[in-house]
């Protein structure tokens, strides 16, 4: 698995990101204020996350964890400060480069699943690979393997409207990792699931983390969910109040 990650890290166009193949994340004095608001969603954050960590961002709603996630994913730009991923500053990237970055290096999991309603389960999972332009045979084998592993193989031809919440989120997880990204960002992945399904998803995430060296950064308001991670970073009013290793 690690070898595959290492292979994938080399951009097909021959660009290399940073030195080596590890994308460590570094935030320096990052602040974010949305237009029209008078408070910072995130204030002067300093943070370092090494490649391969499983980090939980813990806090009540409005504490800035979602904002931080967006910043890490290059979806939003910080008002102040610098975000570096693998030594490269996200701010220095243009829109096309950010898109490329998200395509190859990131995986997202949303609270409301964000599956495309007109795509089947399988087609949703295939998307990242297809957008990246891999040939059909390759995509077929990767996706089939992954779906079987996660146990969604039988439901592959169903549309999201026909899936249960748990199935949908597990599909979202599959979609987030099918292209072997370096980093997975999950925003309240269990927020919309009942406890049983929520546990299943967390177990899946843990398993994935254990097998590959993917960095997983999960925003959640549930302590139980956070417990699955290695490290819990508590946030409040846009600041980090605590940063602990979990047992």
């Amino acid at each position: 698995m690690t070898e595959r990650i290492l292979e994938n890290l080399a951009d097909e166009r021959g660009n290399r990101e940073g030195d080596g193949c590890l994308l460590d994340i570094v935030l320096k004095q990052v602040s974010k204020r949305y237009t029209g608001r008078h408070l910072d969603a995130v204030k002067e954050l300093d943070l370092e996350i090494r490649q391969g960590s499983f980090v939980a961002l813990l806090g009540p709603s409005g504490c800035g964890k979602s904002t931080l996630l967006n910043l890490l994913g290059g979806i939003d730009r910080p008002t102040e400060g610098v975000i570096e991923v693998g030594g490269l500053s996200l701010q220095s990237m243009g829109d096309d480069q950010l898109t490329e970055f998200r395509l190859k290096k990131l995986g997202f999991i949303f609270q409301f699943f964000n599956l495309l309603p007109t795509f089947t389960l399988e087609e949703n999972v295939r998307l990242p690979l297809e957008i990246a332009g891999h040939d059909r045979a390759f995509v077929d084998s990767e996706v089939t393997e992954l779906l079987d592993k996660i146990g969604l193989g039988e439901r592959r031809g169903y549309l999201p409207a026909q899936l249960s919440g748990g199935e949908m989120q597990r599909t979202a997880v599959a979609r987030a990792i099918v292209h072997k990204p370096a980093i997975v960002l999950a925003d309240e992945p269990t927020g919309n699931l009942d406890s049983e399904n929520g546990e299943k998803v967390l177990a899946l995430l843990s398993e994935i983390h254990a097998e590959s060296g993917i960095t997983i950064i999960m925003a959640t308001h549930s302590n139980e969910a956070a417990a699955c991670a290695e490290r819990s970073i508590r946030m409040r009013d846009g600041r980090i109040v605590s940063d602990e290793r979990n047992a």
């Binding site: 994913g73 898109t99 998200r102 949303f110 964000n114 495309l116 998307l127 990242p128 957008i131 990246a132």
Partner: peptide
Amino acid sequence: RPELGTLRILGLSS
């Protein structure tokens, strides 16, 4: 819009 946003996140360009 949400779908379009999702596609953008997944890596589709403008």
